[in-house]
Design a protein around this nucleic acid. Sequence first.
DNA 1: CTTGTACCCTGACCGC
DNA 2: TGCGGTCAGGGTACAA
Length: 275
Amino acid sequence: MPELPEVETIRRDLAPELAGRRITAVRIHQADIVLSPDDPGSFTAAVRGRRIEQVDRRAKYLLLRLEGDAVLQVQLRMTGRFAVGETLPDPEEFTHVAAELDLDDGRTLFYDDVRRLGGLRSMDASVWEARAAQLGPEPLEAAFGPDVLSRQLSGRKAPVKNLLLDQRRVAGLGNIYAAEALHRAGIDPRRAGGSLSRTEVEALHDAIRETLEEALQAAGTTFRNYRAVNGRSGRFQSRLRVYGREGESCRRCGETVVRIVQAGRSTFLCPACQA
DNA sequence: CTTGTACCCTGACCGC
DNA sequence: TGCGGTCAGGGTACAA
């Protein structure tokens, strides 16, 4: 379940390995990880032979900037992972390699995805920029202030947790960090977005940034499937305050953490701290 | 425009 | 030991 901290961790792992390398060959083992409108043939034609200039992230997307104003976009979704090596580094960990991209230094970039919900696609940089413009602000950038968050929530009747998951409002939050940030801010996830006071919006803003920054420092949360590059685990799971802790006691007040369902997703909260 | 729901996919887990 | 049912959730499509 890679969210912003996990994808950014992967970006930091991959950037020094990939920047400047040329993609010399592409092998697609599972056609359905090549995402529409690409197909294996068009994807291979678009990326083979090109040099990787830079590795970026926007929201939960990983972006390999290729020479010739092309972008290789990666969506990890639930179970997408990468490994780099002359051969597959950990065959017991990477058991569902769906694609291989050979590099000009003799190594290969392996994309592994058990459930094949994620995948790769190519597009022109101009197409990507138009899509990126539809995404919400990056919560760790300086421009993301309380006013920006306030604008995204004001007047909204939808539950604040649902709004936080909407990538058009804030980019990069997923189910884990939305729940964690709301707990840290002491806000009930069921509250209408527009019902938050200025003070609460400020608390939520701070909580989002603190939660993401701490998770990034810990190289992400390895809860089920997530691994950084070459199988490295995150460490933030031991610091989760509510996510996945149904029936356990709140680390702040001792009350029992409960699980509810919002928009078909689990939400964990402390009924006392988030009243 | 907003809001909600179904879908994709496999493996882990649970109860019997 | 097996076996069926449930759940995990990001992004997208689509309906109301």
